[in-house]
Design a protein around this nucleic acid. Structure first.
Lengths: 364, 364
DNA sequence: CTGAAAGCGCTTACAG
DNA sequence: CTGAAAGCGCTTACAG
């Protein structure tokens, strides 16, 4: 290190100063940094040397964005609390795929916690969804409040990609066959002979309270994913018991399992959980109640997470392509930004039979 | 909705057009949106009406940033893969606290995967750490490669806050008493009578490969957190066996547990894991090998995560204030941006005795 | 391969 | 409470 850097505090050098020091024009200096135009090696070297001697940190991204029209930022709308959003391994896997699918664009992901409070009528102070600089935004359909972000982003003219959300005008859809996949699981149970089943759903609406499914769940449902998965089961079983979990977690699964399995008189012979985490909780509740799986109760999950962190179970479940969802969203964004009009993507789940489902005990 | 919005595609209206339509100057229109200056109610209403009729989406954040010097973005440097970074519940909790601590600033978090490849000598193409617009950046010290981001960000003049990282010039430190806390755990075991213990560490360096701790771990260690925790144990036990896990996960814990516990001849009487996830894996390996905890082997974790998702254990561990780390970083950033020079923060862990530690069996 | 000019859309002092 | 002026730092056509 034989170059010296002027006071780190105080004045930050600009490209103009670098250009002046190098004895070239601003345009040439700009080209040297961006690599977008033809610059002779000698000139480039002079520019870099000048930058080095001034301690120049590279072109100001904000000024660059203003001129170029690109911010290099992709927004991701998540639930209000980061910790809630990332409790679900599927969200993490999706984010991983998204990060992967967009990194070649040179963009980074901006976390946008959706702090919508359904109760509050007060005009909320604008948050990042309203004001952040972004080239595109990804919405996730298991969220329960998508309408407001969509309308804000539309008006801002920001391209929107939505994963597992209901089809919306002007929103690029990355769909999962939630309904068909759930129907497959239901059919599996039906064919095994189950006639009395229960479904434990993900949060269907914004309230996120545990309890039996209400009769009018359909009107209240704002989570497309949860509603579609439930519909898939109802395509096979017209009557069933429903329990809504407040979150996708083992704790919620345990609570659901206790509620559905405690009463030996009215115990379903099988439970379909809308996530593997819920299924793990149900399995644990069954264990706790002295029930054998799959002899006393069959359990089906959804997601296909690695369960080795949670226990010895070999869960029957639907394996969803979570990383692929994110990657597909990334590809969609790349096309959108390139000015193309990409078509919606439909991804499929795979049924995986494990050891947690079997024929019900013969009724006595 | 009786207003009509001009073609969503094509021209986006600007503040100047809104001002013209409202019959006011650009400055006044700007003030109406930002609320930063005194504007009469009537004028404000006229501006908003004009904006509404033009379908104006609000002031362009990039232009605003260029003028105001603030981007509203806080960067968070995470490990290369999003999924690796968020496998660790402590990172999620920290992020939650950070999101919480910074949201009042009206800022959002930008995920910066650190794609440093130690092997590659090629000049890497610049990523978001080099080019993204940010007001400040948070580094996390359990990462194993901090030097390059720090030097890049310093040169860019972006304020840096580092959580659990080695003290660095010009970097605001949010520290955890990792060494002292680990010494407390070690002392606990020593006082119970353990004389032959093993430590399972988090990744100490950038290579992330499982295996016995090498003698020269100290030179290789770039993860301050892992190194400090190990030093804390060494303050109490001058000799011990060490095993480095490639990640903080139950799977890595199982592998470590098998490696350390399989050989009955050379089995330690206690294991200190540098994370609860690792501890859970070790407990599972012990179970698998038919060992009783704490009779045959004592296990101590670190972090204090909720274990109810993982099993029935009541783990002896050190509870770290993970959410607080993030929140403290957020507060530090707020001060930094306000032009203050905040002092480093030191946060403390709490020892929690569970049921996984006891005196070793009397030797025969 | 290099330079002069224009302008991205906004906010900030400043003057009234 | 409102307006005219300046300028944030850069990139992009365009001309040479």
């Amino acid at each position: 290190m034989h170059e010296h850097h002027p006071a780190a505090s105080g004045h930050r050098p600009t490209l103009a100063e670098v250009a002046q020091r190098a004895g070239v024009s601003r345009s040439t200096a700009s080209l040297a940094f961006s690599g977008a135009g033809p610059v002779s090696d000698a000139t480039r070297a002079r520019v870099f040397a000048a930058a080095e001697s001034l301690g120049y940190g590279g072109p100001d991204p904000v000024a660059r964005s203003l001129r170029s029209g690109r911010s290099g930022v992709i927004g991701v709308v998540i639930e209000e609390r980061v910790r809630d959003a990332f409790r679900d391994p599927m969200n993490i896997a999706m984010l991983d795929g998204l990060s992967d699918g967009t990194s070649s664009l040179g963009t980074a992901l901006l976390l946008l916690p959706d702090t919508d409070e359904p109760e509050s009528q007060a005009p909320r102070r604008p948050g990042p969804i309203e004001t952040a600089a972004m080239d595109a935004v990804v919405l996730v359909g298991c969220s329960t409040r998508l309408d407001r972000p969509v309308s804000v982003l539309r008006r801002r003219g920001i391209p929107i990609v939505a994963i597992e959300a209901k089809p919306m005008e002007g929103v690029l859809e990355i769909a999962l066959d939630n309904r068909e996949a759930s129907a497959t699981a239901a059919r599996h149970l039906y064919e095994l002979g189950h006639r009395d089943i229960a479904v434990v759903t993900l949060p269907l609406g914004p309230q996120h309270a545990a309890g039996p499914l209400s009769a009018d769940w359909q009107e209240e449902a704002t989570s497309y994913t949860a509603a579609q998965r439930l519909s898939g089961v109802l395509d096979v079983y017209t009557t069933l018991r429903g329990w809504m979990a407040p979150a996708s977690s083992t704790a919620s699964g345990i609570a659901a399992g206790r509620a559905l399995l405690s009463d030996a008189e009215h115990r379903p012979t099988a439970i379909i959980a809308q996530s593997d985490l819920l299924a793990v909780g149900i399995l644990r509740a069954a264990e706790e109640l002295g029930l054998s799986v799959p002899q006393d109760i069959s359990v089906v999950g959804f997601d296909g997470i690695r369960l080795d962190g949670y226990g010895p179970w070999n869960l029957t479940t639907l394996v969803q392509p979570a990383v692929e969802k994110g990657r597909a969203a990334g590809i969609g964004i790349a096309r959108l930004l390139a000015g193309e009009t990409p078509k919606p993507t439909l991804l499929r789940c795979t049924f995986r039979r494990g050891a947690t489902t079997a024929a019900p005990r013969a009724t006595d």
